[in-house]
């Protein structure tokens, strides 16, 4: 899933202070799963904005709505009638959401209510970590099913570097050295030989480095 983190409430208050009619829009996709942008969080943020408005002596109307997905025009269309009563939207979907809303409703001001972090998963309840950097050519099978591009601080394909420290990455004791994990796993699997094979430079042309990406699947296009 795409993992996001709520922006500080002060920041949201400050960026929306010129508006008196706000619609907080959530998304039932990834951000609901990572407890940051679902219906529950929409209600919490909306009431926080109301309280803050009152405290600052401002009359703020804050509406609440949660879409099935904000990354799909079909669902974004749903906002059409609702938006007539509002001046601005605070989207608490990932960074895709505010863009789809802004694109569909050019007259409405749209603000992001979360900071989108990474593609990852839940390690356990309340802990998420990065797993994929969307490089466009997946190679995790070479590395014991672990992605060094997203998870090694230097994206090394021939790691580990000399800074690996008792299983921790040189950047911090709070960060695992993923190459330590790759090596341990591969050696346990008896795959040392593969690990010793030189991995040539990767083509980043399929990654963001190749320019903004777009995918067309002819068979699905009507």
């Amino acid at each position: 899933m795409i993992v996001a983190r709520q922006k500080p409430i002060e920041e949201i208050v400050e960026m929306t202070q010129a508006f008196h009619k706000l619609l907080v829009v959530g998304c039932k996709g990834c951000v609901t799963v990572c407890n940051v942008g679902g219906a529950k969080e929409v209600a919490i943020l909306a009431s926080a904005l109301r309280i803050s408005g009152k405290r600052n002596g401002r009359e703020v109307v804050v509406g609440e709505h949660t879409l099935e997905r904000q990354c799909d025009p079909e669902y974004v269309d749903e906002l059409k009638d609702i938006l007539e009563d509002y001046e601005a939207v605070v989207s608490i979907a990932c960074g895709v959401g505010p863009q789809f809303i802004a694109e569909r409703y050019p007259a409405v001001r749209v603000f992001p209510g979360v900071n989108t972090q990474f593609m990852g998963g839940a390690e356990e309840h309340g802990i998420w970590s990065e797993r994929c950097a969307g490089c466009g050519t997946c190679v995790v099978h070479y590395f014991g099913g672990v992605c060094p591009i997203a998870r090694c601080s230097k994206s090394l394909l021939n790691g580990p570097c000399g800074g690996s420290n008792n299983g921790k990455c040189e950047i911090s004791n709070d960060v695992d050295c993923i190459w330590d994990i790759i090596v341990t796993r591969m050696m346990e699997q008896g795959r040392l030989k593969e690990l010793i094979e030189f991995k040539p430079p990767k083509s980043w042309a399929t990654a963001r480095d190749g320019g903004p990406r777009r995918m067309i699947r002819e068979e699905l296009v009507e």
Partner: peptide
């Protein structure tokens, strides 16, 4: 190369297009 978080421009973007082996 040491990660930039060690140094005096920790907000820098790193490259690591290729690694030391490459």
């Amino acid at each position: 190369g040491d990660h930039q978080s060690f140094g005096n421009h920790p907000e820098a973007k790193n490259v690591f297009d290729i690694d030391s082996m490459q």
